[in-house]
Design a protein around this nucleic acid. Structure first.
Lengths: 197, 197
DNA sequence: GTATAAGGTGAACGATCGTTTACTGTCAAG
DNA sequence: CTTGACAGTAAACGATCGTTCACCTTATAC
């Protein structure tokens, strides 16, 4: 058996395991890996797992249970647009990441809101976009916040100067808002997500 | 024991299990749940799991192994900015979702690129943003594409008219590009992600 | 041609898995 | 005061877990 063939086989096995993981939200057991990869002996699986652990494709926790590593992540991180598309070799080495882990620091206090209106259009936030909002962070000057002013909910820049607070839209069509009485800040915008198609 | 207290206890146990799941990338075993929730008997865990299964917090697969349901998702989906912040009751019922599943249809062919330059700024894509690029889709008129024209990589709108192809920037500072010879489209942009802070 | 390493089979191991049965308190409703 | 309905403990079950042993096959290297 030539070397390329062996690597191909290994790759397809990793793909099978990854597919199982994404389908079942858990790693397969040793005998399940055997079924997936056509291995009748659990020892063959044992050796395969050790190899994959060395390749940092997966890892074990204290009890010998399997945890995904590069398997868990769905999008590979490449360079910049300017740099263009990397070679297949670089592509293979590309770092992978989970968008959830990347974007959400506090899962309990983070929510997703849909944007209506164009008041933040100059900040690159368009109607129909989604924003991730963290309720747990303390609002600071310059943050984009979700706020309730005089019984209306809006998304604006937060401008603090001394004790005075202003809500600044990112669109010349709209005027800055100086809350008369109540200003309730529900959370600050930590990310913007736009999906096409 | 009053009813509210009991529900609080249940909620905090769900939280513990969710925390374990996100930390270890797998569901805890019955005895591990016992440790997490302060239950010395596996039967108590058994009853707890059955209750949570009824509440659709988690589920079992064919072999009795646990799978997360509402546990798996990290960001809760609420309404719109205009609608403002929902009441705690609605909040509890909010749909949850995984950003990976939401944004990525084809994991194998999807990559993440960092945006440099301001040529798409009027489309709400700013320098420093990340774009999800799918290599597997066929480019169509109106899509935003990553393309190599005359040895340079750019991100532009794809304009097709008959057999002629033009790359259209979303910034009046730049001119449309009519590729002289080669036009290699590496992929189409399926989503934009901007992270603050 | 022979040695060597790698990939795989098959059987056995103790440990842990999820499940079940039997029993004990503890409240709230009748 | 009695009676259920819960919530929890304790012990035992077969099944499956991850691991290890000895052995076989096959291709590459010397």
């Amino acid at each position: 058996m030539t070397k390329d063939l062996r690597e191909d086989k290994l790759r397809s096995r990793v793909r099978e395991i990854a597919r199982f993981y994404h389908k079942n939200s858990r790693m397969p057991s040793f005998s399940e890996i055997g079924d997936l990869c056509g291995l009748r002996s659990k020892n063959a699986v044992f050796k395969l797992v050790n190899k994959l652990e060395g390749l940092k494709v997966l890892e074990r926790d204290g009890r010998g249970r399997l945890r995904p590593r590069s398997l868990a992540h769905t999008a590979r991180l490449l360079g910049t647009v300017e740099a263009g598309w990397p070679s297949p070799a670089e592509e293979e080495l590309a770092d992978t990441m989970s968008l959830d882990d990347f974007l959400i620091r506090n899962p309990q206090s983070t929510f997703l809101l849909k944007v209506t209106g164009d008041s933040m259009i100059d900040a690159g936030i368009l109607p129909g976009d989604m924003v991730l909002v963290d309720k747990g962070l303390t609002p600071k000057n310059g943050h984009i916040v979700i706020a309730e002013v005089d019984n209306e909910w809006t998304m604006k820049y937060l401008k603090k100067r001394g004790s005075s607070v202003t809500l600044l839209p990112a669109n010349p069509k709209y005027k800055p808002v100086k809350p008369k009485q109540e200003l309730r800040i529900a959370g600050i915008v930590t990310a913007v997500i736009r999906k096409y198609g």
